[in-house]
Amino acid sequence: MTADPVLRAVGLTRVHGHGDNAITAVDGVDLDIPTGQMLAVTGPSGCGKSTLLRLLGGLDRPDEGEVWLGGRRIDLLGERALARLRRRTVGFVHQDFQLMDELTAAENVELPALLAGDAPRTARGRAAALLDRVGMADRDRHLPSELSGGQRQRVAIARALVNTPLVVFADEPTGNLDTAATHDILRLFADLRAAGQTLVLVTHDERVAATADRVVSLRDGVSAGDTPLVVGGSRLGGLLGWER
């Protein structure tokens, strides 16, 4: 991991609503994330985890504070520039997968590359390579309805990687998965981290958080802890009950 952060938040604040109904979802959060780190954001429901993730990934704008990605301040970008940045620089993995039902696995993975302007042949080749990387090459022509939850999440991860993002954001990526599928996805995240991919994931599952390099906990929108973890194959396997 490098010393300079690939992702930085400075005094990040987001308020939902107005007047007496205003709720401060994220309150003055400072955060530096180095390249290649896997960061888990934890905390109780409603503490601001998903809001923080959306702010860091450029899906929402802060009311106060700054977001820097790859050395560039992104919270001041116009909508079109921000959309271009999201397509090319970040990848998102959601709890409910958010695959397009009418597209095959391969077509779902290709789509962000096509939207970013890649030639169809280039997008097709990249999608095939990524589906192979996540163990889904033999399911490339299947529709999402023909895949298990774990398989759909693997396709979603491949899609998040197709434009070679600086950071992959994952919002409760194992929340809809059974134990076996959860283990598979965490192995995949560990492999991505080992390859140098920066990952930021929101989770309420302590077992999932324990596989990260670092855990930031939120309480009522405020950072309540920032803990580096001892990670490695033996710790990861021991925590989850499987061997890498």
Rank of each mutant, 00 (worst) to 15 (best):
M1Y: 12
D4V: 12
R8V: 09
L12K: 03
G19T: 10
A22N: 08
T24G: 06
V26Y: 10
D27K: 07
I33C: 09
G36P: 03
Q37C: 14
A40N: 04
K49G: 00
S50F: 11
S50E: 09
L52F: 02
G57Y: 00
G57A: 12
L59H: 06
D60Y: 11
V67K: 05
V67A: 08
I74W: 01
L82R: 14
A83T: 15
R86L: 06
G91D: 02
Q95G: 07
D96A: 14
L99E: 08
L103C: 11
G117H: 07
P120M: 04
T122F: 01
L130R: 08
A137Y: 11
R139I: 01
H142Q: 14
L143W: 13
P144S: 07
P144A: 00
L147G: 13
Q153F: 05
A158E: 03
A158C: 09
N163Y: 02
L166Q: 15
V167H: 06
V168P: 01
F169E: 00
L177E: 10
T179Q: 14
D184P: 00
I185G: 08
R187F: 07
R187I: 05
A190Q: 14
D191V: 11
D191N: 15
D191G: 15
L192P: 02
G196M: 06
V200G: 00
L201W: 07
T203I: 06
R207Q: 14
A209D: 04
A209G: 03
V215G: 09
S217T: 14
V222G: 07
L229W: 09
V230H: 13
S234H: 10
R244C: 13
